[in-house]
Each structure stands twice: as C-alpha cells, then as structure tokens.
Amino acid sequence: MAKSSDRRRRARSKSCAGDQAQPASRPLPHPSDPILQTLVRDTTTRLIYGFLFKRRQNPPTMVEIRAFLARKLGEAPAQTDRRVRDLRDAFEVPSEYLDGGYRYVLRGWRAGGPLEDRSGISGRLRAEVLSPQRCAQCGRTPLDHGVVLVVDHMIPREWGGSNERENLQPLCEECNHGKRDLYSSYDAAASQIRQAITYDEPHRRIGELLKAFRGDWVPGGMLGVVASAIQYQEDWQKRTRELRTLGWVIETQKRRDVAGRIHTYYRASHWEPWPRGDIRAEIRRRERSARSA
C-alpha cells in the first residue's frame, strides 16, 4: 500500500510539473546552490527549501516540516508556516491534499519568475498601521494586556495582497498566528481566491469565492476581506444575501471559538450563471419585479 501511495504521489508531481508555465529546461536550484541565498535570505527558510527539495517525490506535511526543523535547530520556530509561504515569492509550493493530509509540494519555479522582495514595509508605514495600538481582531492592547502587535496583510500576499495601506492592519501575535493557520488550510484554493479578488463587482467577488470552495464553509471574515478587496464594503453581508435574488442558495452557520466569540460561516450549495451587464442593476430589477408581483 505504501508503494502504491508513493507511485500516486510521483505521478501527481510529474503531472503538476508538466502544467507549469516555466520552461522544463530550468531545473530547481540545489540547496547548496549560491543563487538560493540571493532568493531566500533567511537561513531557516533555506533549511525548509532543502527539506522540500529532498522530499519532492514524497511531499511532507506541516507536522513533518516542524519535526525536521526541531531536529535541526532544537525547536521548531513559531512561524514555520509563514516561512513556507515565503518560499512562494520564488517557487511554486502548493499545499495539496494527498494520502489523507495537506502536503507541501516543491513543484518548480514561480510562474513569471521570482518576485521582488515584497516584505519590506517602511518604518513610517509600519508606525501608521500600528498607531491605533489595538488588535483589529480581539481588541487587546499592549498597554492593558501586554500583547505584541504586528503588521498583518488582510489579504495575504500569496493571494495577491499588496503592501498598500488599505491592505494592512494591526494584529496581536496570537490573532496573527491563528489567522495564518486558518488561511493556510485554504492554500489549495489560493488560485481561485486570487482570481475572485480581481473582479470589479463585490457581488462577483463574493460569489466567485464561495464557488471556489465548492460547497464548503467559508469564514465570514475571509468573505468580508475579499468583498472589500477593491473598494470597502460596509455591508458585505447584504451583498452576500442579495445573491439569493439571482437564484443562489446561500447558507449560514454560527460557530463559537475557544475564546467564546461567535463567528458566522457561509456556503453556496447552488449557484447560477452571472447575468449579463451590471449585476447590481439586475438584482434591483428582480427585486422590483418581485415586489410588484
């Protein structure tokens, strides 16, 4: 059975490699190649690259990556998942569900070539983002609760988020880690999420995100961020409900987290093709028709 699983993984890896936009003649750099130091400046992240390089035919889970770092460094760094995602600035490292778990596949070079360093946020911008001195998610402050605030990308960089001020917010380290853990579990849908963010109309952004999850539950916070990706949507929940006017079946579910906070999740169990022309105008037309019937 193990050999059969290995064969499936190797076949999957070869198939994925053939789909890349990068030329097949451009091999991945060996972990000892000096070019890697110019692309990946963090030593721990380079260790992760070497592990993924070695495990290309048998991609590891995040648990295995952390265990590898613990053996190498004595302990696994707190931001291991962040370092794995940082590799995507230069390489294609999708998280794929294989053999009962999400595994990180070092597939090849990033389509379009390595990005320039996008992690650099100026000191002035960082100070502006952190100036409220309050976590945007839990509301705790450094003065009253002793938390450490960090600059968070509301739309993650790997989903197309930028360093623009409107995409940055202050989060405490605990909330930031929790958000990264949650969002990284959706890495398999990253390409669909990036596509949803590009649409001009908020209804379409919301709808395409729900479609990307194919009937699975989507956290309301993520839906709100994507809805406001181009222009802030104060009432994105209403935009979501309005999709029902177009024949969509939208369900909601309330969940309580470990801190006792209530969060709303959404899913689309049925959707219709987008109408031609302006979506908002078509929704208003159908609403008027329903009232006059």
Rank of each mutant, 00 (worst) to 15 (best):
R107P: 07
D187F: 04
E64W: 01
G123E: 14
D19A: 11
R41V: 05
S122H: 04
P219E: 03
G224V: 07
G74M: 06
W109A: 10
R214P: 00
L115K: 12
A293S: 11
E164M: 06
R55T: 12
Q20H: 06
I197W: 03
R288M: 13
T240F: 09
P59C: 05
E173L: 08
I250M: 10
K211I: 13
E96R: 15
A2K: 05
T264S: 02
D152N: 10
L171G: 06
G220Q: 12
F213N: 00
R82Y: 13
P273W: 01
Q169C: 03
A11T: 04
S162L: 08
R10Y: 00
A67W: 00
L73I: 13
A196V: 08
S4V: 15
I65P: 03
Y104A: 02
D216L: 03
A67E: 14
R7S: 09
A17E: 14
S95F: 01
Y104S: 06
L87G: 05
R8K: 10
H153P: 03
A190E: 04
D278V: 01
Y266L: 07
T141N: 05
R165G: 00
S269R: 13
A90T: 12
V93A: 14
G100Q: 11
L143I: 13
W159K: 00
Y97R: 10
D89G: 11
N163R: 02
G178P: 00
V151D: 01
P202T: 10
S25L: 07
S184F: 08
Q57G: 15
A281C: 00
Q231V: 15
E128D: 06
Q79R: 12
R55F: 02
G108E: 11
Q237V: 14
P29F: 05
G220D: 06
Q195D: 10
A259G: 00
G100N: 10
F91N: 13
S5T: 13
A190T: 03
V84R: 04
R103F: 12
G260L: 05
C172D: 11
G113M: 08
P114W: 13
G220L: 10
R285Q: 14
D33W: 08
G113D: 07
R214N: 15
I283G: 04
D235N: 15
R285S: 11
E234L: 12
S13E: 08
S289R: 15
P29L: 05
S289L: 14
P23S: 15
A196G: 06
C138I: 13
R126G: 01
